[in-house]
Design a protein around this nucleic acid. Structure first.
Lengths: 142, 142
DNA sequence: TTAGATGCAAAGACTTTGCGCACTT
DNA sequence: AAGTGCGCAAAGTCTTTGCATCTAA
């Protein structure tokens, strides 16, 4: 795994006066290893490999804390639970309403829309938080 | 209220072999009167004016049925509950992450993005279902 | 008449909160 | 040593489901 990324997270916590605990290390490690979009439950399950009796409520608290420090971002995808991931490169999400798959795409795809919305509605699109529903390639075929 | 729109909904239900009940009339009426975006709870509260002991579970069932018939669409806006509205003109939603206001915008704003996503990812954007998070004009100022 | 629709209550999924103990600093 | 953070359990919110009853057709 990306040791630097991992240490960066712990440093950011310490820098904000937070404590670095077994639970936080476990969550951070999962987020670094799986650069995927994970629900709180998935984070919990995975992190329990490193902290056996880690509880879901702790995971929620840790994810919330990491979000406040801009280490983590979340997105809402369809009816499903909130998903979290490291706040790395800014990107948008395409979510298939049929199979549920999430596709990450570079935020430049939203440049034009972003400019348009700003001009037309004085609305500033949040590039960290875009989730577009639709049908993915595989599901379009079948 | 728009009597025609109301009757259209009931017709659509009958056309699909569904029954037209007091509960459905109440929900339809609320949706026609308030062309707003309402949560299931708001629909229930409002519809109880016309059907006193209408229950939330019935409202969920009715909204689901109306969605299957493309009479109603829903959208997910931030952390809040799902919102429903009549499937009139196709449009997208801008949702302010600060004050929660929902702004409806014509779907033509998504034409370019839609074409781009189709070309780049073979992904078909669902124009009925777009909700973009960001900051509205008022909140941007303060 | 009779099958679909409803109300109620219970269950479910996801998330938050309270509390006393443990662990980090 | 001191106070933050933790696990556990309970509560909360939104939504779905089971079932007996009612009602539209």
């Amino acid at each position: 795994m990306d040791r630097d990324r991992f240490e960066d997270i712990l440093s950011a916590l310490r820098a904000d006066g937070k404590r670095v605990t077994v639970a936080k290390r476990a969550v951070a490690r999962v987020l670094v290893e799986q650069s995927d979009h994970l629900s709180a439950e998935e984070v919990t399950k995975a992190a329990q490999r490193y902290a056996a009796d880690l509880s879901p409520s702790t995971v929620y608290r840790i994810l919330e804390e990491m979000e406040r420090l801009d280490l983590v971002v979340h997105a809402h995808v369809g009816h499903a639970a909130t998903v979290y991931h490291l706040a790395g490169a800014v990107h948008g999400h395409l979510v298939c309403t049929n199979c549920g798959v999430t596709i990450e795409i570079p935020s430049r795809h939203f440049d034009a829309l972003s400019a348009d919305l700003l001009k037309s509605y004085d609305f500033r699109l949040d590039r960290h938080h875009v989730a577009i529903a639709g049908l993915c390639a595989r599901c379009r075929e079948s």
